[in-house]
């Protein structure tokens, strides 16, 4: 897979999950490690914790002028509310990714490539639900070639507090391995993506 000129990733969840951090790491990977262009915008409500929150990342080989995503190409949902609010904005043939345990109620996703991962559960197993965002980034690195997986892994290592670096890298790898396993499984069945 070669990267298309412009990739648009929309990550949504609630405050405290590290949604903005995930967007930041993604943009960092593209800008500082892949040496491409990236913008990351955040939206959030008045709540310090728990309110809905999202980050939108555009990655391109050219300068990005308009930093807003109208119809995301990749939508990552880490909350039911985020899913419900944004799933309709996803463009046709877009990719929908969700946290298996956090998005329970879904509509038909015909025409979409879909993936899900129990990112929060994995993070908890690894010691802290705080790392769910990093598990999710690892998963993204496996299932979508938005930035190079190596760049994303390096950006994770560079962005987390030094004391938690090892754990976060483990979280990233866990997500990535899970994603690779899913892809392998689908390749066996001759499917590009699950259509729910």
């Amino acid at each position: 897979m070669t990267a298309s000129p412009e990739r648009q990733v929309f990550i949504t969840g609630f405050g405290g999950q590290g949604i903005v951090m995930a967007g930041d790491i993604l943009g960092k990977a593209a800008t500082l490690y892949d040496r491409r262009h990236a913008t990351m915008m955040q939206t959030y409500g008045p709540e310090a914790r728990g309110g809905s929150c999202s980050s939108q990342v555009i990655i391109s080989d050219r300068e990005i002028l308009f930093p807003c995503i109208g119809e995301p190409e990749v939508l990552i949902c880490m909350s039911q509310e985020g899913y419900t609010k944004y799933v309709k904005t996803l463009r046709r043939r877009g990719t929908l990714i969700w946290d298996t345990d956090l998005v329970k109620s879904r509509k038909s996703a015909a025409g979409l490539t879909t993936f899900n991962i129990p990112a929060t559960r994995f993070a908890e197993e690894l010691g802290s639900t705080m790392m769910a965002n990093i598990v999710m980034l690892g998963f993204l690195a496996a299932v979508q070639n938005v930035v190079s997986a190596g760049a994303l892994r390096d950006a994770v290592a560079d962005s987390v507090p030094p004391a938690t670096k090892e754990n976060n890298i483990r979280a990233f790898d866990r997500g990535r391995e899970y994603g690779e396993a899913i892809l392998k499984g689908r390749a066996k069945q001759g499917l590009a993506g699950e259509s729910a």
């Binding site: 960092k28 800008t31 500082l32 490690y33 040496r35 950006a155 560079d158 507090p161």
Partner: peptide, 10 residues
């Protein structure tokens, strides 16, 4: 400082 003081990236 909590912000890394060295520039990041390659």
């Amino acid at each position: 400082s909590p912000e890394p003081e060295r520039p990041q990236g390659r």
